[in-house]
Write a protein that binds this DNA or RNA. Structure first.
Lengths: 316, 316
DNA sequence: GCTGATAGTTGACTAAGTCAAGTAAATGGT
DNA sequence: ACCATTTACTTGACTTAGTCAACTATCAGC
């Protein structure tokens, strides 16, 4: 998620900051509640956290534990000494570095950890069980979002992947296009309706032999899309190119257009055409870079605004 | 959010439980990182939390603090004693109960708290600043969702509110209806396309004098909708009634239908008609309860399934 | 006016964590 | 090859944050 990003010069909205602080306070308490249940065990909370890490990751060193759990090195050293004395862990000096050793739970260590793990599991299960299934999903989805956004060390994921249309997509694309152009250019609700109409027609008359859709998905969310429809045996039309603002700068727009061009060529079309409006600058740049030529312009009044429509063509 | 809900008999999905536990571990660390910054101050973390509560809520008692922050009563007592000695708080015995006293920060207490508060604020600001604005929004939105879902003591909110169509709604409704009927009845993508088409037509030919939409919104999310269109001067048609599964049992469906009936009556229509399919049982029960009569049934093949369509009429 | 519960206090205690100084091994520059 | 620095871990000395149980004062219900 951590795409290269210039820190904003203006400080984030106070409103947002307060919401995050409120969440932090709330979740501090939430974690406290969940941890209470584990306190009756023979292990302290921190010990339990250490055991958890050891149970779930191999080849950890003392430093790793201290860093990942935010613990004092001396304290970790003592904890591990105690665990070793109790035969819960075994340490083997690394060949690569004789100062460090790789720590592993012994079978006894796993046995000691099992009930702790079960308690924690059951407690979370009870928490979830209070919610109906659909809300459980919402909860987990939101947690994943929070985690992905805050986790700096998130492995640089596949920036996006392309797939074809699924159920739910045309509604989503309709919504996002409607909202974006309303926000950025003040277009009214008739634009959203137009998108809905175009997409409905696309699905209803879809001919897989000559037509195709590409949906760009990132992190499970739709972040862009484009459609190619058959206008005539010789002319294909590119429609409804869009990329989410949050996903711009990844080259998704250009990639989508490239896919359309390659598809149109492969199918033997002679021309790929498209219609857009002159105010949509970033789209125009993509079309120009791909070799489209401006064929025609006409003024029109649509979506509550005076606009200049443009037709662009690409000879294939 | 905590609507009356029968706990599920089946244990929640292990997958979900693990995701929540992962989030808890992640956020434990996250809070630890944020708190580190505050550790250099003259106050301990818990002291800072107590001061925060005192700064933001009036008339707290020692018991309130202990309960809300999860602290031992004896410990709270000692903390407050120290704060009082340092003239950071003042206590006044409640007239209603001489055992309790209401605690308030003194001006000196506020002064002492201010830098703490600023540090915490700045730290969160720095955290947010790493993200582009759109992702900040996503983060905060997700946090709010998590909090709303987990907070048992959430003040029982207005269960839902009705409003008319906004930009973004028709896409959302299209998506949700498409996904729901695909999931529950296996309908294919042509149903979603049909919804898109109907809604596009609704917006394009919308006549506020004779037609109307109602969107049920809960917690900022669309959870239901219905539309009334003019079929003829004497006949109004109810279309696309739907309620989110997560919002069922609140009477939203019946309420939406009632609104349609009242509107149709007020506008002088003679009949309110609707078309549905026999498998949609919960919708049918609402229509029957509202006085609709089954007029006609016909078999049809749509959305990839063999279905029985029904026309229901209500004399106004 | 008695019984049992609740709000808060206090003394005695300790688990949990910090800090600084030290050792042994690795790393980097010359 | 050698020395200066850094890193991984250890240890002793210490403090803080929090717990537990016993106690007083007040309240609420019968």
């Amino acid at each position: 998620m951590t795409i290269h990003h210039q820190p904003n010069n203006e400080a984030p909205n106070k409103h947002l900051i307060d919401a995050v602080r409120a969440f932090n306070r709330f979740y501090t308490r939430q974690i406290g509640l969940l941890d209470e249940g584990l306190l009756k065990s023979a292990f302290s909370l921190t010990e339990a956290r250490v055991l958890y890490e050891l149970a779930h990751r191999d080849g950890l060193t003392a430093t790793d534990l201290g860093r990942d759990l935010g613990l004092d090195a001396g304290y970790v050293s003592r904890l591990l000494k105690k665990f070793e004395r109790d035969d819960l862990i075994s340490r083997s000096t690394l060949v690569s570095d004789a100062r460090q050793s790789s720590i592993a739970l012994t079978p006894a260590g796993r046995n000691a950890f099992a009930p702790l793990n079960k308690d924690s599991h059951d407690q979370v299960a009870a928490l979830l069980d209070r919610l109906p299934a659909s809300e459980q999903d919402r909860l987990v989805k939101s947690m994943r979002t929070v985690q992905a956004l805050l986790d700096e060390s998130a492995e640089p994921k596949i920036p996006y992947l392309l797939r074809s249309l699924q159920i739910g997509d045309i509604g989503w694309i309709t919504r996002r296009q409607g909202m974006l152009y309303a926000q950025d250019y003040g277009w009214d609700e008739t634009y959203e309706a137009l998108v809905a109409e175009i997409l409905a027609a696309f699905v209803k008359s879809f001919d897989p032999k000559w037509e195709r859709s590409w949906i760009a998905e990132r992190d499970g969310e739709v972040v862009g899309s484009v459609f190619v429809v058959r206008k005539s045996p010789e002319v294909a039309k590119l429609r409804l190119l869009y990329v989410e603002p949050s996903a711009r700068g990844l080259g998704i727009g250009a990639r989508l257009v490239d896919e359309c061009i390659a598809f149109a060529r492969a199918k033997g079309y002679k021309t790929l055409t498209l219609w857009t409006n002159d105010i949509l600058g970033s789209a125009r740049r993509i079309y120009q870079a791909a070799g489209f030529k401006l064929i025609d312009e006409e003024r029109h009044h649509s979506f509550g605004k005076d606009l200049v429509g443009q037709t662009w063509d690409l000879d294939l």
